[in-house]
Design a protein around this nucleic acid. Structure first.
Lengths: 238, 238
DNA sequence: CAGATGTCAATTGTCAGACAATTGACATCT
DNA sequence: AGATGTCAATTGTCTGACAATTGACATCTG
């Protein structure tokens, strides 16, 4: 069975490439021309264009044409796209490995029960691990999930260090978005012990809720980052 | 002359309201039905739908229907929307005031010249100020702009503490997006002095490039935040 | 000559109608 | 009970057309 991309997907990729290859301010070919070139109807093309327009990559002016804005967004996506630390590290060329790993099935704390919107008596799986870079601990990640979301079996078989990648690969439940709160903190006693750093060292902390398509919270996580290893950024738009 | 909204704009607003008023997971009326109700063609409607789809507010399934995801994105926008600290503070109900303010016309440092992509001999305006909350300094913001972007006159007249708001109000040049890098740092000597805190205190730091529509960098800024006053978050999507 | 005005081709915005592909519920058969 | 066929509903895509706007050029006018 050959994996065939749908018309939309092909079109989207082709357009993305075209836009990425264009200089800022450059005018794209006209819609009839593009539709011919991409072998789709103008209506379908326009819908795809609208997608790029809402992302601020192009703007259209009636009577004049379609123009690309600066391609910052294309070559450079930030925190606003949901991807794991491992995927992010791979993109920036930082070799990372999985350090100490703990997988605890247990009952949730009051905070976790509230965050995940579950009963105190129900079960959760808590995944704690250290991410190593250049033989030093660079991050400490703690994920808490309802036990029915992720089977312990899947965790044993092919856990590479990323709960997010596992959930994405599993495909069920379908993930929608994540709300990530950003703080600067000093290392607490247990975080310092896990990362082998001094208590009081400065850390970047993310507290995140991961939402499934139906609105359910499927993962509540704390992530601690030692400055210098990762570079996080956000693209902000008007 | 009456200001009339274009068909697209009306449609967009109506759809936004409809989606916002829907419960998570709810199915929207069919496309032909919606097109009739909004008095537009199905093609136009679909283009607007695509806009909301790329924003993750709805998803469409062929043969089944169009569904709204949870309205997190609607009620809760984060760092990914470009707005000033003052606007953000107003939204969360934190009363802030402008503390010590310095406006320096000077020549750029090497770092600034490179960031703004200008000559070392050209002029820049450097705006430094402290943001106060509850009688304590909560943030320290340093903006550097090419001198032709912002007239010193505008700064004198109605500067409320936000360079971004001033540029948005001025409308020229039109702003497109901002790239904001996120770090956790300890206070350096001069930052500590400006904020009246201890050297070595933990701070959240943003380093941001503000882009105009033509791709030019119009503002290069450092922002330091004392933990506890502001809450920053990002909505991340697949 | 400078500025206003008209003309026109190119381009995006919108429309109507049609058919294809998929889904989900229901009925039917084994 | 489970597999299979049927069918209406819904989104995906296509075609061709016309309206509205833009920008360049020619033309008129004081």
């Amino acid at each position: 069975m050959v994996s065939v991309l749908s018309t939309s997907q092909r079109l989207h990729e082709n357009l993305a490439r075209l836009i990425a290859d264009s200089a800022p301010g450059e005018r794209l070919p006209s819609e009839p021309e593009l539709a011919r070139r991409m072998s789709v109807s103008r209506a379908t093309l326009r819908e795809a264009m609208r997608a790029f327009e809402t992302q601020g990559m192009i703007y259209r002016r009636q009577g004049s044409g379609t123009y690309v804005t600066h391609p910052t967004q294309v070559i450079d996506s930030g925190l606003e796209v949901l991807q794991s630390i491992e995927t992010l590290a791979r993109h920036i060329g930082l070799p990372v490995s999985l350090g100490e790993l703990h997988i605890d099935p247990r009952t949730p704390t009051e905070e976790e029960a509230q965050a995940l919107n579950i009963e105190l008596e129900s079960g959760v799986i808590c995944v704690r691990r250290v991410i190593m870079a250049q033989d030093h601990s660079a991050a400490y990640l703690v994920d808490t999930l309802p036990e029915d979301v992720l089977s312990p079996k899947a965790l044993e078989v092919d856990f590479t260090g990323s709960v997010l990648d596992l959930l994405l690969k599993q495909g069920n439940p379908p993930l929608a978005s994540s709300r990530c709160e950003i703080n600067a903190v000093t290392a607490s006693v247990d975080v310092a012990r896990a990362m082998h750093i001094q208590r009081g060292d400065v850390l970047l902390r993310f507290v995140a809720y991961l939402y499934a398509g139906n609105g359910r919270v499927v993962d509540y996580s704390y992530s601690y980052f030692l400055p210098g290893y990762f570079r996080f950024h956000v693209v902000r738009r008007v």
